[in-house]
């Protein structure tokens, strides 16, 4: 079909937003375009010759498109591109920079579960899973993706307001010899030294040691 008259301003800031390798393409509407702008999206695997259209993101009016499925192989790198349409006019294709899922994703904090006895607390950490196509799909922990993954654990004594830090590689930690009947708040962070990736700290999970019998 003849190419439309491409003088529409371009979509702006086309980029991937990725968390736990859920890779979503985002962009901003063309400057001054107003309502009614539609978009279509394509992507390509770096080093492979062709652009592939994303049918579910054809003629959409939203400014994002989930490309997690198309970019799930984190041993590859990708480009994505967006084109805008309005009243018979179109924009140029606007591309992302090269996207490397392994180094360009953000990692969620680990899940923290805490239990306590009279004088100790036990902490179990669970690293987030890599995005998967469906709940029935195979679960891949980010631990498998980043073998050097470690945890920083912060334990705050609510009475003394003193905070201790632990650095652990395995996902369990028991802190013995605590004060009975005292509240402790635990939060944890994931860090990978290379490639350098840090999650934020999880929200605090507070628990009290049992009272002295």
């Amino acid at each position: 079909s003849g190419e439309l008259y491409c003088s529409l301003p371009n979509p702006r800031n086309v980029h991937f937003e990725s968390v736990n390798m859920k890779n979503v393409l985002h962009w901003s509407a063309p400057e001054g375009a107003g309502d009614g702008v539609l978009y279509k999206v394509k992507y390509s695997v770096y080093g492979v010759g062709k652009w592939i259209r994303k049918p579910e993101c054809r003629n959409i009016n939203r400014t994002w498109c989930d490309l997690s499925s198309e970019t799930s192989d984190y041993e590859e790198q990708y480009y994505a591109s967006v084109k805008a349409f309005l009243n018979g006019m179109c924009s140029d294709w606007m591309e992302t920079t090269r996207f490397n899922p392994l180094t360009d994703t953000k990692i969620d904090p680990p899940m923290v579960s805490v239990s306590s006895t009279e004088k100790s607390i036990s902490i179990i950490l669970t690293a987030p899973e890599k995005w998967k196509r469906s709940p029935e799909g195979e679960s891949i922990s980010l631990l498998q993706v980043y073998p050097g993954l470690q945890y920083n654990v912060s334990v705050l004594n609510k009475k003394t307001k003193k905070r201790w830090f632990f650095s652990i590689s395995n996902n369990t930690l028991v802190v013995p010899w605590l004060e009975p009947g005292t509240a402790y708040c635990v939060s944890a962070q994931i860090y990978v030294t290379t490639p350098l990736l840090h999650s934020g700290f999880s929200k605090e999970h507070c628990i009290a040691t049992l009272k002295d019998k």
């Binding site: 390509s44 770096y46 080093g47 492979v48 062709k50 920079t97 180094t103 490639p195 350098l196």
Partner: peptide
């Protein structure tokens, strides 16, 4: 870690100079 941090600092700049998407 040092090599990675050196590369991360220039990755966008260098990759932007490479227009050929179809070959690695």
């Amino acid at each position: 870690t040092e090599i990675r941090s050196g590369f991360s600092a220039i990755k966008a700049n260098i990759q932007a100079r490479d227009p050929i998407r179809t070959l690695s």
